[in-house]
Amino acid sequence: MAKKIMENTGRGAGHIGPDEIPGTAGDENPGAAKSQVKKPRRAPIPRVLPVVEREEQAKPVKKHPEGTCQLWLGLVLVGIVGLLSLISVFYTPYDVYAMDTASRFLPPSLTHFFGTDNYGRDVFSRAMTGAGFTLFVAFATVASSTLISIVIGLISGYAGGIVDEILMRLLDAVSSFPGILIALVIVSVMNNGKYTIILALCIMFIPSFSRIVRTGTLQYKDAGFVRNARVFGASAPRLLFVYILPNIFPILLSSVVIGLSNAILAESGMSYLGLGIQPPIPSLGRMLYEAQNIILRAPWCALAPGLVIVTTIAGFHCIGEGLRKRYL
């Protein structure tokens, strides 16, 4: 029989209608015959279609290392900035606040990597410290909003019904404000400071993270292993935190890392507007604002903090995308 098929397809190459698949000749039910024969049959050699198929097969093989590459690039970029800001806690090449009128507007050199500003302060040291504060705010923001979102998302997904409806409508309302608007409201009703900006940015991220957790919870709520655990008498919190939550982590992780880059963007934007950490504590956004007026004299004052921001954001972005491509 197999021989007959091969003969047939060989003759009619390039044109594979159902009539070309002979199967059990003279069968009264050609549809059933078709599905029976299709699997064991060796692939015919049509002329037009396989090109598309081969492309599709080749892609995943190429994509896999792409994610890895991005992941490492991101880790290196974030690593550099992270290391510098970690060092800045213990040591900076120059005093961050010390003004030195003798060395104003020095261009970048070996003694001042990023030059000095209009008060003679070392831009490199300030950028190091500023990056530290930015990273601290970003991590604190994302960590706290992740924790809150996990609770909201789990409750909303697991309880369902009216609780779910109310929580989701509230989150919808919050996310219909653009993020920066929420931050502006919080900053305007509370005092300026590190914790205000963390709280302000934290609220920005809760809606999207909560939705991710909620979707994941819904997905696993009725999965076999959860039902099994329920039968064995596991309590709701145990079901949620021990059985459901670990399955949501992979999806949540890449969003959280991309959330970090958004947090840095938002924090530097707020401190650019003068609503973040207050001077004289250096922050990258504020440094950019101060450099704006002296950009013709000392472009490095603007370029240095800007590049640090770009590097960090691009780094977290690469890590997030890389994680998503590799593990999802």
């Binding site: 963007l265 956004g285 950009i295 013709l296 800007g306 770009v310 954001i313």
Partner: peptide, 17 residues
Amino acid sequence: ILGTSVPGFFMSILFMW
């Protein structure tokens, strides 16, 4: 990637310069 990583205000400052 670059476009999403460069903050708008930094880009504006570069444009102005």
